[in-house]
Design a binder for these strands. Structure first.
Length: 464
RNA sequence: GGCGGCUUAGCCAAGUGGUAAGGCAGAGGUCUGCAAAACCUCCAUUCUCCGGUUCAAAUCCGGAAGCCGCCUCCA
């Protein structure tokens, strides 16, 4: 089965063929580190994690770059409001961002270049664009000349000639040749305070779009395989990246563009004024673990809008329990007689899982295969028709697909006092003191420990 | 005004021509302390509506309704 992706640029599903055999170079638009990232941001990062992990599963060697935007209007404004340096301010939120990635089980990219560390590369690129007649300077500001790039608008399918000069164009940009031209470099002004770079093209700071072009080129070359991001970045950001990169290099920039759809909350785009705005930290504080959020953000196909609700999160918690209970209970299973069916069932899981993910990361289909497998193996187990070898084969398959899903919860050691309570409860049950036993169980639940009385004795797990 | 997407069971969600995956909820059952947890079984003659093409349509074509988004802050 060939691996197929929907390419936003051609608007068609295409077989994935890397530029270099067995290797994938991909770029992802990362966060602007001026606050805690919200769950909509993480929907995109989870999609990219699924893509990355599945490419690795398929045996590709990945070079993945995610930029950190640590300079822009918002970072400057908010750091000044706090009276701390831009660096101190963005370092705080960069650290928080990596903590959040860990919470969600998102695998690290190979490179996380920060914009402020790559101003030289951006300046070089701007100079090149000016030399080639693709950019011009007005009062220390540099703009990209869209008229010099005939393909502009091709990604977003916009006809620039038909665009109206809308009310949203800022009035202070009157000096541009065309309202559509975008800033590559912003000359220093008083509002920037001590935030500026002294460079060959003057004192100022880079625009947002140029950083992704300059940094992707530095780490991935002028032409690479996959560029991802949220749909809202398609225009103008990615359109501008194409214009800058191809304008500077005269070479195709990216082979496959992949965009993830929006996350909505209660059917609407998140906004602070609507009261439906959540950071990952808000969700964690409400008692959900990162892996539940991971499941929710991942379980709906990346090109479908995902409506976030707490009811949905509860349902996902249960589904995730089923996944983890299966692995845990199967690991504890002592094995029985083989019925000869298990190998076929396990093979079906792997085939189905791969066939679905090969089809533009059809995760819902893949999860359907996983839950089919869980039911089929549980049935054999209930009838004692699963041998030790078959059990291990099934577990190995689950571990294999979990390198992509990363849903499995390893049960770390529990505290001595919790252990003592579990022992006390077992004693209480022996002496038929069920009131005390239930009291202890409820107490442990508050601490996030769920107990299960099985024929082989008591089991515990952490609530996810 | 221009461009794009979506509408499948109570909720979430796969399925792009061959007769409706999966999860949650619900019902029944196994185990058990008439418990919890876990596990098993059942649960859409039908895919927003109206036409059309076809031996065959949730899937293709035309039309209607509703919802979401993009058109220079935005994952």
């Amino acid at each position: 089965m060939p691996l197929v992706f929907k390419n936003s640029f051609t608007r068609a599903k295409e077989e994935f063929k890397p530029i270099d055999d067995g290797k994938v170079r991909m770029y992802t638009c990362g966060p602007t580190v001026y606050g805690f990232a919200h769950i909509g941001n993480f929907r995109t990062f989870i999609f990219e994690d699924l893509l990355r992990r599945y490419l690795k599963y398929k045996g590709y060697e990945i070079t993945h770059v995610m930029n950190l935007t640590d300079i822009d209007d918002k970072t400057i404004r908010d750091s000044q409001a706090e009276g701390i340096s831009l660096k101190e301010f963005t370092t705080r939120y960069t650290k928080a961002f990596f903590e959040d990635l860990d919470t969600l089980g998102i695998e690290r990219a190979e490179h996380y270049p920060a914009a402020t560390d790559h101003v030289d590369e951006m300046v070089a690129m701007i100079k090149k664009l000016v030399e080639r007649g693709m950019a011009y300077e007005v009062d220390g500001n540099y703009y990209f000349k869209i008229a010099a790039f005939p393909n502009y608008g091709k990604l977003a399918n916009l006809d620039m000639a038909g665009l109206k000069a809308g009310a949203r164009v800022a009035s202070d940009e009157y000096e541009k040749d065309s309202v559509s031209d975008f800033a590559l470099w912003k000359a220093w002004d008083e509002a920037d305070g001590d935030v500026y770079f002294e460079t060959e093209i003057g004192k100022g700071r880079p625009g947002w779009h140029i950083e992704c072009s300059a940094m992707s080129m530095k780490y991935l070359g002028q032409h690479f395989d996959i560029h991802t991001g949220g749909v809202d970045n398609m225009f103008p950001h990615h359109e501008n990246e194409i214009a800058q990169s191809e304008g500077a290099n005269d070479k195709k920039f990216v082979n496959y563009w992949m965009h993830s759809e929006y996350l909505l909350v209660d059917g609407r785009k998140m906004s602070k004024s609507m009261g439906n705005f959540f950071t990952l930290r808000d969700i964690i504080e409400k008692g959900y673990s990162g892996v539940v959020m991971r499941y929710m953000l991942m379980a709906t196909h990346y090109r479908q809008q995902l409506n976030f609700t707490f009811d949905g999160l509860e349902a996902d918690r249960k589904a995730l329990d089923r996944y983890n209970d299966f692995i845990s209970n199967l690991s504890d299973y002592a094995g029985g007689e083989s019925s000869g069916e298990a190998s076929e069932i396990t093979k079906k899981l792997l085939t189905g899982f791969e066939t679905h993910l090969d089809d533009d990361l059809n995760i819902s289909g893949a999860l359907g295969d996983v839950f089919d497998f869980i039911r089929d193996i549980n049935r054999l187990k209930a009838e004692n028709k699963l041998s030790v070898e078959e059990r291990d084969e099934a577990l190995a398959a689950m571990r294999k697909i979990d390198t992509v899903l990363a849903f499995e919860q390893k049960q770390e050691m529990i505290d001595a006092d919790i252990e003592a309570l579990i022992v006390e409860r077992t004693e209480a049950r022996k002496s038929k003191d069920f009131a005390r036993a239930d009291e202890i169980r409820d107490e442990l639940l508050v601490q996030g420990i769920v107990l299960e009385d099985t024929a082989q004795g008591v089991k515990w797990k952490r609530k996810v």
